[in-house]
């Protein structure tokens, strides 16, 4: 029950950041994806089942907040959350490199899959143009933000064990 509340709280926080803060952080049209960040964090902390469910919920909200088709990001984040969650058992080793590497890969995979789905469903846009001008820059941006937010989020979500340092936490 408490786990569900924390998960819902984290997704709600991500929505607020995506709507209220992300537009102001736009760099050359590239906007960070807080919902992806929260999905990956939840997956790493809670495992594949929660990761998939949280990813589906976060993706659905992402789709509802936008103006494109509803469903593609829900599909992509559900899969990304599930796969990232499979790594959860090995994720809390010392060091920060592994979680951020997962975030970077998740960002690229999410961008590619979403771009592909949009191209298929909407029938416009160039996949490779999107890859260069959106997917890669956004992945870098997400990792930079993840460096700042992941430790905080993981501490917030994983209250069942003490985490005193970034090194221990990540």
């Amino acid at each position: 029950m408490r786990r569900g509340l924390y998960t819902a709280g984290a997704i709600l926080l991500a929505v607020l950041l995506q709507v209220g803060l992300a537009p102001a952080l736009s760099l050359g049209g590239v906007v960070p994806n807080f919902l992806l960040l929260v999905t990956v964090t939840l997956a790493l902390v809670e495992g594949p089942n929660w990761g998939a469910t949280a990813g589906f919920s976060a993706g659905l909200l992402f789709d509802l907040l936008g103006s494109g088709p509803i469903g593609p990001m829900a599909l992509v984040l559900a899969v990304v959350g599930y796969v990232a969650g499979m790594l959860s058992a090995n994720m809390f080793a010392e060091g920060w490199l592994l979680p951020l590497s997962v975030l970077a890969i998740a960002s690229v995979v999410t961008g590619m899959a979403y771009g592909l789905l949009i191209t298929v469903f909407v029938g416009t846009g160039s996949f490779w143009q999107g890859f260069v001008s959106v997917v890669l820059p956004e992945a870098l941006y997400n990792v930079a933000l993840g460096l700042l937010l992941y430790p905080v989020l993981a501490r917030f979500l994983r209250r069942d064990r003490p985490m005193n340092t970034f090194r221990r936490l990540a």
Binding site: F56, P69, G71, P72, A78, M91, F92, A93, R168
Partner: peptide, 28 residues
């Protein structure tokens, strides 16, 4: 040093399949 992993429930592929199908239904 590695801290103990979280006690998460085992992965349920059926859940993922259900969510993917649901997302496709929503899109349709």
């Amino acid at each position: 040093m590695q801290t103990p992993g979280p006690e998460n429930s085992p992965a349920r592929p059926a859940l993922l399949v259900a969510l993917v199908v649901l997302a496709l239904i929503v899109t349709t």
